[in-house]
Simulated assay, not measured.
Amino acid sequence: MRRKILPYNKHLVGRARQLRKTMTKGEIILWQHLRKKQILGVSFLRQRPIDQFIVDFYCKDWMLAIEIDGSSHDSLAAQERDAYRQAKLEALGVSFLRFSEYDAQNHPEAIAETIKTWLLTHPQKKVLPSQGS
Score class of each variant (00 low, 15 high):
residue 68 I to C: 13
residue 96 F to V: 07
residue 91 A to C: 00
residue 91 A to H: 14
residue 52 Q to T: 10
residue 46 R to Y: 13
residue 93 G to E: 01
residue 91 A to G: 10
residue 95 S to D: 15
residue 51 D to H: 14
residue 71 S to W: 13
residue 70 G to F: 06
residue 94 V to W: 03
residue 78 A to L: 09
residue 75 S to L: 02
residue 81 R to H: 15
residue 66 I to M: 01
residue 38 Q to T: 08
residue 71 S to D: 15
residue 53 F to I: 00
residue 93 G to L: 07
residue 45 L to H: 15
residue 69 D to Q: 13
residue 91 A to F: 05
residue 60 K to R: 14
residue 57 F to C: 10
residue 42 V to D: 00
residue 60 K to S: 11
residue 46 R to G: 03
residue 73 H to W: 06
residue 76 L to C: 08
residue 77 A to P: 00
residue 53 F to G: 00
residue 72 S to P: 00
residue 63 M to D: 03
residue 74 D to N: 13
residue 74 D to Q: 13
residue 93 G to R: 11
residue 72 S to K: 09
residue 68 I to E: 01
residue 56 D to V: 06
residue 52 Q to G: 08
residue 93 G to S: 04
residue 73 H to E: 09
residue 63 M to T: 06
residue 71 S to P: 13
residue 60 K to M: 12
residue 67 E to R: 05
residue 53 F to E: 07
residue 88 K to L: 10
residue 72 S to Y: 14
residue 51 D to K: 11
residue 97 L to W: 09
residue 70 G to Q: 10
residue 84 Y to N: 07
residue 44 F to P: 01
residue 94 V to H: 06
residue 53 F to P: 06
residue 82 D to R: 02
residue 53 F to R: 14
residue 44 F to N: 02
residue 63 M to A: 12
residue 66 I to C: 02
residue 92 L to V: 12
residue 51 D to P: 03
residue 47 Q to R: 02
residue 97 L to G: 11
residue 75 S to D: 00
residue 64 L to A: 10
residue 64 L to W: 10
residue 93 G to K: 09
